[in-house]
Write a protein that binds this DNA or RNA. Structure first.
Lengths: 112, 112
DNA sequence: CAGGAAAGTTAGTCATCGCTTTCGTAAGTG
DNA sequence: CACTTACGAAAGCGATGACTAACTTTCCTG
């Protein structure tokens, strides 16, 4: 079944893919330009892009022969959910939202 | 340098290791009892435990011949930091929750 | 159409990973 | 001391993953 988190997690477990994600976190970029930032071949980057796309972490937009990519931040939500789960702050999303609404001001800091 | 996040990320990318982490999230448990919860051999679980320990996600405490493990939540901090980074530091908490909420209902059955 | 640019696809290689089997080690019991 | 319990360590195996090289596809231009 591969939960969404599973794919997202596998995707960002690869350092190169994290670098790609960071690269297109705040801007759209064509595949070729993305590949230029690394020392691997374009097909390699292309494969990474597909993994990220299938994990719901990237959005692809075509423009002529170019394919523009940018990060899809919502794709990281399942991961955040897992972290929150482990952290013991909440058990499900609805509850977390409720808590956030209730305690926006006193919730900010944790990590202890 | 192998950032701490790198190891933690690789560690939790494995489904079985996540299951182990969940198992000892709120309670200490000896290696043997942990292994009983899975259908792989004890050495296999033992290897997972070591990976998690080296990633800073587990704490080991010896008691006689037993080795008790429990989750070390602070180990997930670097990961959380990465997520926050990707999510955009400028976004405040409420906005983040809202986006996550949108992402959940939006992502349900695509990625195909 | 022909020609070129941008990118994905396929096949095959090498390293890594998760697993099992076998063996070793440390602590408790008689 | 021998014996058992609880566990890790080492070696080897099959599967997966990241990469390269070569090919194909899509789109634009003349």
């Amino acid at each position: 079944m591969t939960e969404p988190m599973d794919e997202a997690l596998r995707a960002i477990a690869e350092p190169r893919r994290r670098a790609i994600l960071r690269l297109v976190a705040n801007q759209e970029m064509p595949a070729g330009r993305i590949a230029e930032h690394f020392e691997v071949t374009r097909p390699a980057v292309s494969q990474h892009l597909q993994v990220l796309k299938e994990a719901g972490l990237l959005i692809e937009r075509r423009e002529g022969t170019k394919r523009l990519y940018r990060a899809r931040r919502e794709g990281l939500a399942p991961l955040r959910q897992f972290l929150d789960e482990m952290w013991g702050e909440s058990l499900d999303f609805a509850r977390r939202i409720a808590e956030a609404e209730r305690g926006l001001s006193d919730h900010r800091s944790q990590a202890g």
